[in-house]
Design a protein around this nucleic acid. Structure first.
Lengths: 403, 403
DNA sequence: CCATTAATTTTGACACATAAACTAATTCTG
DNA sequence: CAGAATTAGTTTATGTGTCAAAATTAATGG
């Protein structure tokens, strides 16, 4: 039951945001096209872009009259793009043994990466907050910036994280449950700090910079040690009432099944997550196998590997198919932390998903497998950080604007 | 990939809609409270309500100074409410053998119900469109109105219905696939006609008039012959890319399981839908049992009924738990077409759902079982019809407004 | 009856958006 | 090569939506 005064959605600042988003999505775009795409009149686009130009958020480009422009009749269009130097954003990923900080500019272009080791896996809130800010400070120092130059820090955390409230129900990075981490971070940083579940951030990255650009309804499933999901519906990240949506790894695939890290039984992760696969293989006699080892064992004809992977694929495909049935998304991105392949993300599995999901005579949900390295988490954090910093830039009035 | 000129969301008519929605949600509310709840200034609320009053969409109430008002100091608040006579809306449900039309006023109050028999189960599009409009005309006639008085007709159809595009991928009510039914209806009716999946409409009814009032994120699961779902996220109905979201009955609960009506195997409906239960019971030797019969057989200790229902409960609970895990909604409404009880909607099943879903130290998803009669479908249609008619009323300018 | 209180309305000003007219920078055409 | 044609972008005049502050209204309390 949400009520009360939500002044947030100010209809007056609306246009600015639309224009800025159109420019970001297009990369470079002329005013006419902004008007056409957004439905805002050319007059207003001129006014708004003039404002954004004077604030330094965007900039003109004339030299490169890009190819498709050649041979057009009238006045040539003047493309606009975001001005990278306008803002500096830090994306932070807290892992077990390291804190990764990725510094990017307003366009999302990388400025530098920094990794700071962590002394312990589960920290006290104050210790973790200190470490995050210290790592960000160090990242800035290493790349010729100061922490004061940063316009926003976005922190991604595995676990049940309520990004809207800045609250951590549970995370392996903390030594206790129910921590209001956002205030602790805000107190230590000279700029806004945003907190979010790591899978949600990967979804945001896909939306802003990846396959999800311009797609209104899509899901991003992260496949690695655990299995997570970020849900983008109507162009918005859906967090759930408590911020705990998308815990796909803990959806139940069998009754009273294998024991999961979370303490419950029959979770997808317990069969198809990295640790689940290792566990099942170990139980069946294949000790100390990585996912890649298992894949090779299967290829070599090892019956245990074949059995374990086959079961995992079956569960994984069924869960993905049920996502299609329940969400009917345009697109599902499988963001896999692996170099080149993953035994669960094979053409056969995708075909199985198609067969198990309800089909109509219309283009089916596209499933896109993206193999990523471990930077993906910090990149996700920068994506959401940029979005939030952009939102602040949109709201902020031009203020003192004299000659 | 949605692009192009979507002029739809006009930020200027924003306030009108907010005010009207606040009045609808509250039933009766004073201007001060509208201002407080919406965040709109009192001055603007006065202006907007004056406009709505002069258009006859809302009306004043003074006589009943409701109890909590007594003994307050200053000028008494003047409550406002919707004016029922402002609009007439028809909600239509197409069933196998009958078309049900429910006429309601702008507040949702019932004006009259009418049922028209259908000659066939699966009709040609033109025949069905004719029948729907004829039934609506008859409903009007029977209750002293004319079809021309109706401001909007909302038609609920079981099947894969893309309400946004007015397209029916498949419905048992039609004798063919892929029908653009909305244009056929629009051509026959003197007012806007809206088309939607029936489960989505039940969700809309819960949002406007039921347990979902003021709840931003909730799911409505319909349990009867089949199992359907409507998804409300961020206060909006989520339809999916093709309008096929929420096909919960066809999520797969076991690999290569029981055959479903839809032709696939292992669907939830094949175990827990009304026809699925009958099938499973019949296979195990209990022929021709209704769901209610099965419930009584179970209570009487029949081992087959116990077995069949136990399996169904297990699957149903697991699917519901997975909804909690994936959506993290505030609320799930189980809308059950039954008089007093249903073997799948028992306290034990709800307890099982709680045990199978990820829990954090925050209020869990509430699950609310609502037993309804077969009017629920037509009521759902009126709910969405009213919302759409209201949206049109918000957009429409006051136009000629002289003395 | 008048002070007090609270709801509502009026007033004056400003921000945002637009249509229409205008200016600018090209290519095309004779 | 001069203008005609074409397309992009800007300026202007105007309307709409919103708000803060002041004014008005309708009660209660002494």
């Amino acid at each position: 039951m949400r009520e009360a005064t939500d002044t947030a959605n100010d209809p007056r600042r609306w246009g600015r945001g639309r224009v800025l988003r159109a420019i970001r999505q297009a990369g470079a775009i002329a005013r006419v096209d902004i008007a056409r795409q957004t439905g805002i009149s050319a007059a207003t686009v001129t006014a708004l872009t003039a404002e954004l130009l004077s604030e330094g958020l965007i900039e003109r480009i004339h030299p490169e009259d890009r190819a498709p422009d050649a041979g057009r009749r009238g006045r040539p269009r003047e493309a606009l793009r975001l001005r990278g130097e306008a803002r500096l954003v830090a994306g932070v990923k807290v892992s077990h043994r390291v804190i990764t900080v990725l510094l990017v500019d307003f366009t999302g272009a990388e400025i530098g990466l920094h990794e700071a080791p962590r002394a312990e896996i589960a920290s006290a809130p104050a210790v973790l907050a200190d470490a995050i800010v210290a790592a960000t400070t160090a990242a800035c120092a290493r790349h010729g910036r100061r922490l004061e130059d940063v316009s926003g820090i976005c922190v991604g955390l595995a676990g049940q994280v309520d990004g809207a409230r800045g609250h951590v129900h549970w995370s392996s990075a903390l030594d206790r449950r129910n921590v209001d981490l956002a205030p602790a971070l805000a107190a230590r940083a000279p700029c806004p700090v945003f907190l979010e579940n790591d899978a949600n951030l990967v979804a945001k990255a896909e939306q802003l910079f990846g396959r999800g650009r311009g797609v209104d309804n899509f899901l991003v499933v992260t496949v690695q040690h655990g299995i997570g999901m970020g849900v983008i519906l109507g162009g918005e990240l859906h967090r759930g009432a408590r911020g705990c949506s998308g815990e796909l790894g803990h959806s139940k695939v069998v009754s009273d099944g294998a024991l999961c890290q979370c303490g419950q039984r029959g979770c997808l992760e317990a069969y198809a997550g990295g640790y689940g696969l290792r566990m099942r293989a170990a139980e069946a006699g294949l000790k100390d196998m990585s996912v890649e080892d298992l894949r090779q064992a299967e290829a070599a004809g090892d019956p245990v590997a074949i059995e374990v992977l086959s079961e995992a694929r079956q569960h994984f495909a069924r869960v993905l198919a049920n996502l299609v049935t329940v969400f009917d998304p345009e697109l599902i991105v499988l963001a896999v932390e692996a170099e080149e392949g993953h035994p669960l993300c094979t053409p056969e599995v995708l075909e199985q998903v198609r067969q198990l999901s309800l089909s109509v005579d219309a283009p089916p949900t596209e499933i896109d497998v993206q193999f990523r390295d471990d930077r993906m988490w910090a990149e996700g954090a920068t994506a959401y950080g940029i979005e939030r910093v952009e939102a602040l830039a949109v709201e902020r009035r031009p203020l003192g604007q004299s000659a």
